[in-house]
């Protein structure tokens, strides 16, 4: 069997004496789309930030492509992992194009020099369903949905094979959210990237995930394909979550 791309090995993490993740273990195979769902404050963002080393585990290990994150150069690690944060976090002083080209520019990628930069940024804008004409705009000149799309384009720019997404569609209306979900599904199928996607919306978790992880108070309580959550909820919380979603079509 192939080596898991992301591995949590009995990870514990506390903040100020409050345990946030307890004995958290998880294996994520290459090409999987894992959606993580749980109440706000249950440790979803914390789990993501452990993967790119923005925080360190108190005990246990996190491995990315077999390498312990604690022992990897964080800068190199992060440049190989696409990351979209909960509130997008576009750079307000950079145009859309410069925002998208940020990671390649950090590593001085020759693929993004001069006119190539405009061409590639335009291509990525199209990938996320935006007009290439937006390249010269500043983030404050964009709508919430457009910003989220630019955030995704920025995360894709360095062609990472792992993508961490923290409630990326939180701040957009229902219709835009559906479009973004469909585009992300298409990207996942086309590129075969491994995605770790946090959401608090069960419908979204079931629609996007090849597997879904339910977290309750820092512990994984169910981990399986969407259909298993519907047919076999492992805890009362999962049962309650999916009760309202019986009518929705899960990803097969």
């Amino acid at each position: 069997m192939a080596e898991p791309v992301i591995q949590f090995d009995r990870v514990c993490k506390s903040f100020d004496g409050h345990p946030v993740l307890r004995d958290f273990s998880l294996d994520l195979e290459r090409g999987e789309f894992l959606t993580v769902i749980g109440r706000s404050g249950c440790g979803k963002t914390t789990a993501l930030r452990l993967v790119n080393g923005l925080i360190a585990a108190d005990s246990g290990r996190v491995l990315v492509k077999g390498r312990d994150v604690a022992q990897t150069d964080p800068v190199a690690l992060r440049r190989g992992i696409g990351y979209t944060i909960q509130n997008v976090g576009l750079f307000p002083h950079m145009t859309v194009e410069k925002n998208i080209a940020y990671v390649p520019s950090l590593s001085k990628s020759p693929l993004w020099k001069g006119e190539e930069r405009s061409r590639r940024a335009a291509e990525l804008l199209q990938t996320v369903g935006l007009e290439p004409g937006l390249a010269g705009r500043y983030p404050r000149e964009l709508s919430g949905g457009q910003r989220q799309r630019v955030g995704i384009a920025r995360a894709l720019a360095a062609q990472p094979d792992v993508l961490l997404m923290d409630e990326p569609f939180g701040a957009v209306d229902e219709i835009t959210r559906r479009q973004l979900q469909d585009e992300l599904l298409r990207l996942h199928q086309e590129r075969g990237i491994t995605i770790l996607f946090v959401t608090h919306d069960i419908e979204e978790a079931l629609k996007l995930g090849t597997r879904v992880l339910v977290m309750e108070e820092g512990r994984p309580t169910q981990f399986g394909p969407p259909s298993a959550l519907l047919s076999n909820p492992a805890t009362p919380f999962v049962a309650q979550l999916v009760r309202r979603s019986r009518d929705f079509a899960p990803r097969q």
């Binding site: 992060r78 440049r79 190989g80 909960q86 976090g89 576009l90 307000p92 950090l106 995360a155």
Partner: peptide, 14 residues
């Protein structure tokens, strides 16, 4: 804005 700094660090800026 801490979100922007989080993004900058998370994308691998030194």
């Amino acid at each position: 804005d801490p979100d922007i700094l989080e993004a900058a660090a998370g994308m691998g800026s030194t």
